[in-house]
């Protein structure tokens, strides 16, 4: 299976330059459905699912490879090489912000611009560094994931049903957005929330924009400032939006910020 099939890569848009959108933990490329189309007139837009999420090839999952964020970064590079990307724009949400950083360190020619949405180089507090969580919080999260994957497990076929509240969804599969394999999701949560990429930030050479929400329970503003202070020449914009997913809650603001930067 090709990497494009493995990662369910979707290419759209007409531009000469490419813009790659990467989703974070907990969702899939649907995360970008309100943002990516806005760039189709000027860019070739590329969306994909990390292995284990959405419609990726679950059989490609290798616990060793994906036990480190570098494994996901290697996939991103493989997709970029397959599509012949050079000097492209990378837009990564949440943990994919760091995956993009790692990819750009491995192959600096692939992305000229990095746009990091709600990035965190380390979620767990460490001395003076405030990541926002204690190690025990993350252990509790890993435990708790099982509670919600009961009904969401890959074993259960998604149910097709009408949704009277959102008729525009029609017969779309309920909970088909952001479907993840429960076992892989747990691994992904572990690697996401226990990674420490602080030392990688200083080596970034791409132009970098950091987008941060005003009230993000996952990546506090101080973490955004930390990333800005450590990636040379980077710029930080605080969006007037709350939560961890401005790509869904404030897509217009995200689009405007990206457009102004590129």
């Amino acid at each position: 299976m090709s990497v494009l099939e493995r990662n369910n890569v979707k290419v759209a848009g007409a531009g000469a330059r490419a813009m790659v959108f990467a989703h974070g933990f907990g969702c899939d490329q649907n995360m970008w459905r309100l943002v990516a189309p806005a760039f189709e007139d000027a860019f070739k837009t590329i969306m994909f699912d990390h292995v284990g999420a959405g419609s990726s090839d679950l059989s490609a999952y290798d616990p060793d490879k994906y036990g480190r964020l570098q494994g996901y970064a290697d996939d991103l590079i493989a997709i970029g090489r397959e599509l012949g990307l050079r000097d492209a724009v990378f837009v990564g949400h949440s943990v994919s912000a760091m995956i993009g950083v790692l990819a750009s360190l491995s192959d600096p020619s692939m992305f000229s611009d990095l746009i990091l949405v709600g990035p965190s180089p380390r979620y767990i507090n460490d001395g003076a560094y405030i990541g926002g969580f204690d190690a025990s919080d993350i252990d509790e999260l890993l435990e708790a994931l099982s509670d919600n994957h009961l009904g969401w497990s890959a074993m259960m076929a998604p149910i097709i049903m009408g949704n009277p509240d959102r008729p525009e969804l029609g017969g779309e599969l309920i909970n088909s957005f952001c479907r993840t394999d429960p076992v892989i999701a747990k691994d992904f949560a572990r690697v996401t929330f226990t990674s420490d990429n602080r030392a990688d930030l200083a080596r970034v050479t791409a132009r970098t924009l950091i987008l941060q929400c005003r009230d993000d329970a996952i990546a506090p503003e101080t973490v955004g400032e930390y990333v800005r202070n450590n990636i040379p020449g980077s710029e930080l914009i605080i969006l007037d939006a709350t939560g961890h997913c401005p790509n869904l809650s404030a897509p217009k603001d995200v689009i405007a910020a990206i457009r102004a930067f590129v």
């Binding site: 907990g26 459905r33 949704n163 969804l169 779309e172 309920i174 952001c178 961890h244 869904l248 809650s249």
Partner: peptide, 8 residues
């Protein structure tokens, strides 16, 4: 939260 935003 993403799921709520997407399917309501």
């Amino acid at each position: 939260s993403p799921l709520l935003r997407m399917q309501g």
